[in-house]
Structures are given as structure tokens and as C-alpha cells.
């Protein structure tokens, strides 16, 4: 039985307290968002292990990575929009290029920044970091997966970026589900098309799959929580077995999950693809549901894209 949903904000505090209790090397950095991120709980439990840097993301990221040279396992948090846009050079030099450790968490990606609006809706964080070497890019779709990710990145040396919303989500996984870095999760099998989704778009994909089943279309749904390295083997298998792919991401389609999947598809097994995500526009204020609908990222929009992509199978155009 899938347990009751818990907000990611609660999970980050609890999970990092667990990790800090187990491993004295864990140190957590934030940039004046302790009261917003859910890390207050951690700060109260371990006041000496939460470094609130103030509003200085670039220094925080460079410093956190460098602290790993001394043996620290550094977790750092800021909003997703700022994690990539303000810190890409520090992530590059101090962490990736230096081959040091960094576990960076960017909260409120894309439309999940909701009423914080366009300045805060990082539609491009993963795309900015996608071009770096020596970095793993992750996005959890539910709390069980997020908890697993935090533990996994703590235990794995290297540079990781996790983008995650802070708000409550539906539950997806059982507590005992096993995951693997670099491996997507097939949530339901299907024959006619694969929807490869991530984060909040996984739920839209599952809803779309139900609507499509009613129309007699059999849909495979993949939770591709690891964008880089993307699960090449699974993408190829989906292309071969279902003959068409729709990607769905809460991110700019120009540089995100869809691009990563398309790269594998084009190089290995070209099949028709369609893309769900944010295309050539900035974010704006509104509820998550409102923005998903407005940006054509809701289940209905996915249904339409699936119908188009199926129409293109076998060389036919919709």
C-alpha cells in the first residue's frame, strides 16, 4: 500500500537529519532559504552543521565543493532558478572540473515556483547543467524516490544536482521500491507509444495514459528521474518496442529531458517523437495546475501529442 503523501519540504529536513546522524561528514549549506526550504528542522537538530551563507549562491556553491577537499560531504540548497543560472561557473570549476564533491539541491523548478513567477521559474536549470561533464542530474517524482536520491548521492562521490519541488505531491512508489542511478523506471507497460516523463509531469503522463487506454491506445510510461546520464538502453528499448516516444518535462524543451532522449533516439533508433514542456516562453505567476494547462503540459496536452506521434508512425504525418 502506498503510504500517505508527505511534502518534499518535510522530507528534505528529515532525510538529511538521518544522513547527518549516520555520517559525521555531512554538512548542509543554504543561501538564506532555511525557513523556506524545510531545512529549519535540520538547523535545529544540528545547528553547527547547517551553514546559512546569506544571499550569496555563487560563494556558497564554490565553497561547499571546496569543503569536500577536506573530507566534508557537502549538500547545498537554493532555488532551482538560481542554482543553475547564478552558479554554473562555480559548479563547473569548483566541482565538476576539480573532480570534487557537491550535492546541490534546487527547489521549485519550472512551474512549481507558481506564484513566485517568471523570475523564479527555472525552466532552464537542467539544460544549463546538461552541457557540463562529470555531473549527474536528477529529478524525483515522489517522496520515496527523493529520499532514496538523497541517500544515494550522499553515498556516491561526485557532483549531483537534484531539482525538486517543495510542495506536496501525489504518492507513486512503495517504500520498498528499488531504484538505480542512471536507470529509468517503467511505471506501466504499453505497446503503441512510450511517454518518458519526469517530476510533476509523471502524474500528467499517467493520467494521459488512462485517457488514451479508453481510446484503445496502449501506453508505456517511464519515470526518467535521471536526465544525465539518461538511460540509453531503456530509451532504445522503448523506441524499438513501441515505435514512438513523447517526452514530458517541467522544463524548456530546447535543452532538457526531451533533448537528451532525442539524442539517443536519433543516434540509435530513429522513431517519431513529440515533446511536452515549456517552449520559447518565460514563466509567469499562477497555480501549478493553471500553468501546466497554459503551457500545454497537462494530461490533455499529452494525449494530443500522443495522437500526433502515433499518426506519424510508419512515416505517416498527422
Amino acid at each position: 500500500m502506498v503510504q500517505e503523501s508527505v511534502s518534499f519540504k518535510e522530507i528534505i529536513g528529515d532525510a538529511l537529519i538521518d544522513l547527518a546522524r549516520e555520517d559525521s561528514r555531512v554538512l548542509v549549506f543554504d543561501a538564506d532559504l532555511v525557513n523556506a526550504s524545510g531545512l529549519r528542522k535540520f538547523a535545529e537538530k544540528y545547528p553547527d552543521r547547517l551553514i546559512d551563507c546569506g544571499i550569496q549562491e555563487a560563494n556558497m556553491v564554490g565553497m561547499a565543493a571546496a569543503a569536500s577537499e577536506a573530507g566534508v560531504i557537502p549538500f547545498a540548497h537554493t532555488f532551482a532558478a538560481f542554482a543553475a543560472r547564478k552558479c554554473v561557473d562555480q559548479i563547473f570549476l569548483a566541482a565538476c572540473y576539480s573532480k570534487l564533491d557537491l550535492k546541490l539541491i534546487g527547489s521549485d523548478p519550472g512551474v512549481t515556483a507558481a506564484t513566485n513567477g517568471g523570475s523564479h521559474q527555472g525552466m532552464e536549470d537542467m539544460g544549463i547543467l546538461m552541457g557540463l561533464n562529470n555531473i549527474t542530474l536528477l529529478e524525483p517524482s515522489d517522496g520515496i524516490l527523493f529520499r532514496w536520491m538523497l541517500r544515494e548521492v550522499k553515498n556516491t562521490p561526485g557532483v549531483f544536482y537534484i531539482r525538486t519541488n517543495r510542495k506536496e505531491e501525489r504518492k507513486l512508489y512503495e517504500g520498498d521500491t528499488t531504484f538505480q542511478l542512471g536507470k529509468g523506471n517503467v511505471l506501466q507497460d504499453g505497446r503503441d507509444v512510450t511517454i518518458i516523463a519526469s517530476g510533476i509531469e509523471v502524474y500528467e503522463a499517467l493520467d494521459a495514459a488512462k485517457l488514451l487506454e479508453e481510446k484503445g491506445i496502449s501506453v508505456r510510461v517511464v519515470d526518467m528521474f535521471c536526465w544525465r546520464p539518461v538511460d540509453k538502453e531503456l530509451v532504445i528499448r522503448c523506441a524499438k518496442e513501441t515505435g514512438a516516444i513523447v517526452t514530458a518535462e517541467n522544463h524548456a524543451t530546447s535543452t532538457g529531458l526531451g533533448s537528451a532522449v532525442a539524442n539517443v533516439v536519433v543516434n540509435n533508433c530513429p522513431v517519431p517523437m513529440e515533446f511536452i514542456g515549456v517552449t520559447e516562453r518565460f514563466g509567469e505567476v499562477g497555480s501549478i495546475a493553471f500553468l501546466q494547462k497554459k503551457f500545454n503540459m497537462d494530461a490533455q496536452s499529452i494525449v494530443k501529442k500522443v495522437e500526433i506521434v502515433i499518426g506519424r508512425k510508419g512515416g505517416r504525418q498527422a
Binding site: 554538512l27 555563487a58 564554490g62 571546496a66 569543503a67 577537499e69
Partner: peptide, 9 residues
């Protein structure tokens, strides 16, 4: 910043 991280670490 790296020096700060080194000293803090």
C-alpha cells in the same frame, strides 16, 4: 571561495 571552503572544511 574555495579557500573559504577549505578553511571551513
Amino acid at each position: 571561495s574555495m579557500a573559504a571552503g577549505s578553511a571551513l572544511g
